[in-house]
Design a protein around this nucleic acid. Structure first.
Length: 804
RNA sequence: GCGGCUAUGGCGAAAUUGGCAGACGCGACGGGUUUAGGUCCCGUUGGGGAACCAUGCAGGUUCAAAUCCUGUUAGCCGCACCA
């Protein structure tokens, strides 16, 4: 009699059992393994099948590690502060405190449907005062070390979200969250000196087992360049102007300098005759939005009326202003070599400036240029004493020559900017700083933390560039902790990324109220061994977390300086026609109905079977019947075989070991979709065999069940118990295979003529080349009619005859 | 504009990393069980009568190429005046 398969009853039973008796508990004898998910922000009304997939991937991996004998740290929490959560609350017209907790409850229910291993005792919520107390504490440590500082300058401003943004939050000149065009606004801001860590953030990427793509994105974002600063004297004045360049070898080709309109020297450099035009240009540029400035294809500019003196040939070089030069990179001034730079070329053409080629491919002069020659090879021309040198040689020598002559020095530059850290919004951690008229900026005393976000009714963002909490007098007014005079609190809040920059540390000691995390625990359980999430955080959260970790390492509170050893980016699940799933497009597929109809185990398996875990896939439900059938078929095989007591044949034992081998290899490659194909293949094989033998031996079924357990934990537990086991299957060791047992005496190899297969033969493993060729020849004798010029045998692989 | 990734049946995809292309699944077709439908079970399923032809397209290297090289097209992603 076959025991019928009832996924609902099985799931319910095992959820309760695991709750009563957790299967993943701390054991000092076990090695730790920290498998982390990117935690969700509770901004919408639920998860879709794409989020679910990421959590299934991490759960399968966690359970696999558990069975390999690790104590697995697999926590979950809520990225509850910040713009996404607040914008959702505003849209729904509820207070973020309320919407956040409601959303968390709903998402938690959905996550529980995964049947995952999460240890909810470790749960964190970034908007919980007991958590953000320590987010504030870290800020104070940065403030003390001079890494958090205040500055007023034109920052990126989202007019829709009504807040300043970090560079990382701007995509194509638009707000990363809402898509509005970002403008500039002069605001007093809190900044974090992430640039101090630029070099380490770059260099330490080499230590990480991360996708190359993400490493490259971070590398490009940090944007280190090696160049020189070169001084030019200004004609008629006893002043110099300094440019930054990475192409010093083209120095003789300089025909003009361009200074950024935002540069402090820009207005000063204008001569009397040019003052009006220069001031107008500076004003015009300041009115342009980021998007305008990016999309402006045509070069604009204005002549200052002043000239610089070329340091090598003393020629007069006109100094121009143009917005294609950025004020905050290098020195904000560039030397222009129109013959060898596309942008300079375009500018020179537009304003009729001279173009002097200094590199020629063949060393010949070619005066009529239609575009810049930007190749990095060639021979120098028009370059005085440098004429005839190879470009590659001069590139090495020029910096030394210039340094010796004293008008330039080697310099390194980065694209990375300091992190604009304050937001003019309500739903975030208050920045724990007090502005005292006598003492300046003073941090809130640590014993007063957490500095609680005041509960207010009108939390909507203001137009003024001030946070809504600036309106609460009783909160803003305070005493200076140093001199006790009347002072004011900082009213800006921290960005959404503040909590997520360190939350993974807090999980392992989430109730600690004397330290942000105990030193013992954090060093015992971290760094994270495997971090799973989408690629969208490549330069946001992942860069910020690395910065925080390095800072905490530097102040001596943790012993590691990289947070995430291995990173895995799961592919996105899109809706029909590859459109991103979202509430607004109305194409969200919720896992809820599928869990109800097919069961959690089937959906888990299907979400993995749909495609390689790292590749984006368009959602469809066509294949879910396939995995559902597979589970039922294996269930039936196991139940039918249970009381038959079939003895394992040597053939069966060999199959077992091949199964273990094939599954384990694919697990190690993280090829979860083909792990499932392999299960299906072997299931078919066993079902066919069982027709002859009237069942499958217990050992084989048990091994199959163990291998299957990380994927379909509920069904696996039930089968395991049906087989008379009283302990959870997850306390079993991941099965091992033996190469010795797997070995076959014979191997089937193709026999080819000119690379085309004509037959397949079975040959003995250790056969000699001559014997193999002889057997091959026999097998395809009728095709061997021509002149065989070459015979190839690759042991265990192939026989090939080359015929003319 | 610069850089990266991808391209394989009707569909999702495999291919031990240069060695039998299309595993596994969906769908479709045929058959069986069932009063019937569903479930379930068993076949067939890249094209072509065949030799053969097929991994976006065109070349190349090799005894042998989906895999390596060169060029090219399309799609996606990242950066976007960073000097």
């Amino acid at each position: 009699m076959t025991i019928p398969f009832n996924h609902k009853a099985i799931e319910k039973k095992w959820r309760e059992n695991w709750k009563k008796k957790p299967i993943n508990v701390y054991d000092e004898k076990k090695q730790k393994y920290y498998c982390l998910d990117m935690f969700p922000y509770p901004s919408s009304n639920g998860l879709h099948v794409g989020h679910w997939r990421g959590y299934v991937i991490s759960d399968v991996w966690s359970r696999y590690k558990l069975m390999q004998g690790h104590y697995v740290i697999h926590p979950m929490g809520w990225d509850a502060f910040g713009l996404p959560a607040e914008n959702y609350a505003i849209k729904m017209g509820v207070h973020p405190v309320k919407s956040t907790s409601e959303n968390i409850a709903n998402i938690k229910r959905q996550i529980n449907d995964i049947g995952a291993l999460y240890d909810w005792n470790m749960e964190v919520n970034t908007s919980d005062p007991q958590f953000y107390k320590w987010t504030q504490w870290i800020f104070i440590q940065m403030f003390r070390k001079g890494l958090a500082y205040e500055k007023e300058f034109p920052i990126n401003w989202c007019p829709s979200c009504k807040t300043g943004l970090a560079n990382e939050e701007i995509v194509h000149g638009r707000c990363e969250r809402c898509g509005a065009e970002v403008t500039k606004k002069n605001l007093r801001q809190w900044m974090l000196k992430i640039t101090k860590y630029a070099d380490r953030l770059l260099g330490d990427l080499d230590k990480l087992d991360w996708p190359e793509k993400v490493k490259k994105m971070q590398k490009d974002w940090i944007g280190k360049s090696y160049g020189m600063e070169i001084d030019f004297l200004i004609k008629g004045k006893n002043e110099r102007i300094t440019v930054y360049t990475t192409r010093v070898e083209t120095l003789y080709g300089v025909t003009f300098l361009v200074i950024s309109p935002e540069h402090t020297l820009a207005a000063k450099l204008a001569t009397k005759e040019n003052r009006e035009a220069v001031e107008k240009y500076i004003l015009d540029v300041s009115m342009k939005s980021n998007v305008d400035r990016l999309q402006a294809k045509k070069k604009t500019g204005v002549f200052t009326g002043n000239y610089a003196i070329h340091p090598l040939n003393q020629k007069e070089i006109p100094i121009w202003l143009s917005d294609y030069v950025l004020a905050d990179h290098g020195t904000g001034v560039i030397m222009c070599v129109p013959a060898h730079d596309d942008r300079d070329f375009e500018f020179a053409k537009k304003f009729n400036l001279p173009i002097i080629p200094v590199i020629a491919e063949d060393g010949e002069k070619n005066e009529s240029m239609t575009k810049a020659y930007t190749d990095v090879s060639g021979i120098m021309i028009n370059s005085g004493e440098w004429n005839g040198k190879k470009l590659s040689v001069l590139k090495q020598e020029a910096p030394m020559i210039i340094e010796k002559r004293g008008f330039g020095r080697k310099m390194v530059n980065y694209k990375l900017r300091d992190w604009v850290f304050s937001r003019q919004r309500y739903w975030g951690e208050p920045i724990p700083i007090i502005h005292c008229p006598h003492c300046g900026n003073v941090s809130v005393p640590e014993e007063e933390l957490p500095l609680i976000l005041p509960k207010i009714e009108n939390y909507h963002p203001t137009e003024t560039g001030e946070s809504p909490i600036a309106n609460i007098d009783e909160w803003v007014k305070c005493k200076c902790p140093i001199c006790s005079s009347e002072a004011k609190r900082e009213t800006n809040t921290m960005p959404q990324w503040a909590g997520s920059s360190w939350y993974f540390l807090r999980y392992v000691d989430n109730h600690n109220d004397v330290e942000f995390v105990s030193r013992k625990k954090v060093n015992q359980y971290l760094p994270v061994d495997m971090y799973i999430g989408g690629v969208e955080h490549a330069v946001l959260h992942l860069l910020y977390s690395r910065f925080y970790t390095k800072f905490l390492y530097d102040i001596g509170v943790i012993d590691f300086d990289e947070p995430f050893q291995r990173l895995f980016n799961q592919g996105m699940i899109t809706g029909e026609n590859d459109i991103k799933m979202s509430k607004t497009t109305g194409n969200m597929v919720s896992p809820d109905d599928l869990v109800r109809d097919y069961g959690c185990d089937s959906l888990r398996m299907y979400e993995l079977f749909i495609g390689p875990p790292e590749v984006d896939v368009e959602w469809n439900e066509r294949g879910i019947d396939g995995v559902s059938r597979f589970i039922k078929r294996f269930w039936k095989l196991a139940m039918d075989s249970k009381d038959v007591n079939v003895l394992p044949t040597s053939e069966m034992i060999k199959i077992r070991h091949h199964l273990i081998h094939d599954i384990t290899c694919r697990m190690e490659k993280f090829s979860l979709n083909t792990v499932i194909s392999t299960f299906m293949k072997y299931n078919n094989k066993l079902i066919n065999l069982s027709k002859k033998t009237k069942g499958i031996d217990r050992g084989t079924i048990e091994i199959f069940t163990k291998l299957l357990a990380p994927f379909v934990p509920h069904v696996a537990e039930e089968i395991w118990e049906q087989y008379g086991n009283t302990e959870t299957v997850f306390h079993e060791k991941w099965p091992k295979y033996s190469e010795e047992i797997m070995k076959d005496d014979t191997v089937r190899i193709p026999v080819q003529i000119n690379g085309k297969t004509k037959a397949v033969i079975s040959i003995e493993n250790n056969i000699s080349k001559d014997d193999a060729l002889a057997q091959g020849r026999n097998a395809i004798a009728e095709h061997l009619t021509g002149n065989v010029v070459k015979e190839i045998y690759v042991s265990g692989k192939i026989v090939n005859f080359v015929m003319r």
